[in-house]
Design a protein around this nucleic acid. Structure first.
Lengths: 225, 225
DNA sequence: GCAGCGCTGTGATGCGAATCACAGTCAGTG
DNA sequence: CACTGACTGTGATTCGCATCACAGCGCTGC
């Protein structure tokens, strides 16, 4: 039996019995991706459900005139394309590796069998989906009601929280461009630049290249409302 | 044993065995609500998961300065506050009856037991959550990338699709105010008025009072992209 | 070297939609 | 009945942000 420890790093799978992990491992198709490589495209037939083992993956929606919005940047351990679980639908968004990444994929049909046979797994999936939904609804509210400044603050705080554990001055290493940051915030490249510059001038943040340090976390939080 | 047919009208429960329905019914707390009555408020401790039996329920998020955004108007048969499944969290949004409504509620703890004991129910919940997530992500994309006109068109089409089955000229009966429609679109009351007026002038829609008829559905669809 | 390219900062301009302000309608109520 | 309060339509003005335009990088490769 192959070593399945890598699965224990994925929260959804973490607490499952070893026998089940072995089964999951057996059905996992692993894939190594280069920076910028596409994992799947919006509209393609949905094969299955994915998770990030290492690296980062961005999930984007594109409008017909080519502008894109990043729904979320997935960190190691997170699931994506869970939307298709038990629904045979095309992928609702596009997934691209932000940096070189390793992702796992389990075909719908296999996962469904596993879920039906194991309610602990079902429970974990329900939890994961709930959390994603929660996040999505928060984001809807932000886009609808908040201005660029608060949305930027919100994104910075979240990125900081996701990446590093707990540090004194949270630092974010952006593995993606300003353009990507902009479409994560829901604005344009130029506006993000201006917003960051303004925050830097007021000593709320500091940045150089692709490293951003949050100097005044409390103030940022006050912006988020 | 009480008659549980009303549960069969809820898609999530529709295909479950009668014995399980009886159990569900047994744990359901039903509540009759007047128009405008609050079911729960954002931030309150989450008791359980709800579904609409009759009437309509709006799910809203409020910003600190009082402006609100309607995440979704729930129709009969739909679930809400599923976000809390297996997570003990405060309610992430507020729920208010749009018109007099009847809603069912099942306590988290009860539902969790039911889910653990029945894979079929778990599967249905996963499906329902997936669909909600899909919807949420679509909405995120709309808010981030589309203008008020396309968002309005999108909302009108969806309302029409949800309410009536299939008619020649889809007609929407708004049970809520222009203000509500605006915060569903993600804009202001005045702008919605203007947008609707413009569409009326071009004979794309017609409306009078709280009835809106979609005259040129094809054109509306072309706006949505 | 320097040509080409992708990324970044920053100024100037324009547009969409929020905001402000007010008038008109309607339902309910004393 | 007038009278209040909640809702709607509309114009005028403002403002945030997108857009446009361009300059300064730091690359890679020839």
């Amino acid at each position: 039996m192959k070593n399945c420890d890598y699965l224990k790093a994925i929260p959804v799978f973490a607490n499952l019995p070893d026998a089940l992990l072995a089964l999951i491992d057996q059905h996992t198709l692993e894939r190594q991706l280069e920076k910028g490589e596409t994992i799947f495209m919006e509209g393609e037939a949905g094969e299955g459900f994915h998770y990030v083992i290492a690296g980062q993956v961005k999930i984007i929606k594109t409008s017909e005139d080519g502008r894109e919005h990043i729904i979320k940047v997935m960190q190691p351990g997170e699931l994506f394309a869970e939307v298709l679980l038990f629904n045979s639908l095309p992928y609702p968004a596009t997934a691209i590796a932000v940096e070189s990444a390793r992702v796992g994929m389990i075909r719908n049909i296999d996962l469904e069998r596993l879920v039906l046979g194991n309610n602990q797994l079902a429970l974990q999936l329900i939890k994961a989906l709930s959390q994603r939904l929660l996040y999505a609804q928060q984001k809807i509210k932000n886009l609808a009601l908040d201005d660029v400044l608060s949305r930027t603050a919100e994104v910075l705080l979240r990125l900081a929280g996701e990446q590093v554990g707990k540090e004194k001055t949270p630092e974010i290493k952006l593995d993606f461009s300003r353009q990507d940051l902009a479409s994560l915030v829901g604005t344009t490249r130029e506006t993000v630049t201006r917003t960051l510059s303004a925050l830097k001038k007021d000593a709320i943040i500091d940045f150089e290249g692709n490293r951003i340090r949050l100097l005044d976390v409390a103030y940022l939080k006050s912006l988020v409302s």
